[in-house]
Design a protein around this nucleic acid. Sequence first.
DNA 1: ACTGATCCTTACGTGAACGTCAGATTATCA
DNA 2: TGATAATCTGACGTTCACGTAAGGATCAGT
Lengths: 156, 156
Amino acid sequence: MSISFDAPSTPEDEVPRVMRIGEVAELTGTTPRTIRYYEEIGLLAGGTDRQLGKHRCYSHGDVERIQEIVRLKDLLGLSLEQLSQLLEAETARADIRREFQATDDPERQRELLLQSRGHIDTQLGLVRGRIAELSRLEADLSARAQRVRDRLEALS
Amino acid sequence: MSISFDAPSTPEDEVPRVMRIGEVAELTGTTPRTIRYYEEIGLLAGGTDRQLGKHRCYSHGDVERIQEIVRLKDLLGLSLEQLSQLLEAETARADIRREFQATDDPERQRELLLQSRGHIDTQLGLVRGRIAELSRLEADLSARAQRVRDRLEALS
DNA sequence: ACTGATCCTTACGTGAACGTCAGATTATCA
DNA sequence: TGATAATCTGACGTTCACGTAAGGATCAGT
């Protein structure tokens, strides 16, 4: 709980703080176990560089990624297996960004961007499909509510 | 597969056909086991009148109810336990309708209708909340897609 | 260097939501 | 009145997504 006074008023970003699993769990509304599990099944990168037994390190970007996973899982009702497939392209996002910045070949950059776009569009499709289904459900429920209102009115 | 020719062109309603569990399972995209399970945990009425060992009988209304259960479960991501609570008022819907039609007391009728309205409104609240969350997600994804488009454009 | 807090790995346990199988029973139709 | 298909009631098995506990190591502050 003791916050370092060397990093005053931590503006939540800018400073690339290094966090550990407990903190990440709290920030994402999960638990350490869950995060390790996601790493275990390949949903999270799980740094190939960490020595066995050492503590896991996370960045603010990692937190965002986990939050997105949780969001997609809950809102789309996907299994972790399905999420893995959906995000498998994005899993290598760090790598992609690295390669993107490394290469000077505009053709290659274009290719990477197109890949990213396809990935996002897939997610958008799923989200919009979900919204459509829920809208139908809302319409059905509204109709029902209207019928009840009518009958209430007819009673007075 | 052999359809009775006594019921020509079955218009899907009007005729109160009596169905058995296998047919209901197909119509609802579930399995007999699932339907029995739902009955077991009190999510479905499970006729108190059926004799032990006899086949279960279902009406078209039962099919609709099961379809709605599946829909709420999938789209809202609720557990069967939560669904039981959410629908517990509606579970007695048949009883309510019966009482509604039986009584002449308009005050009682009004009460039953208000109850029904509250129930529907609760569901509507959940559905709209879900839609709101998904809309936020869609906005986030759209923003990301836009950024990628911009960079693609900047490349040409 | 010590210490308390947090984290590590390993492994077994758990609840939800069914799947599956066996053996008996019930319904339908020729 | 059989024969065939579908259903019945247990009861145990399974998968997913973690929970939990044990025994030991790591890290931050003093």
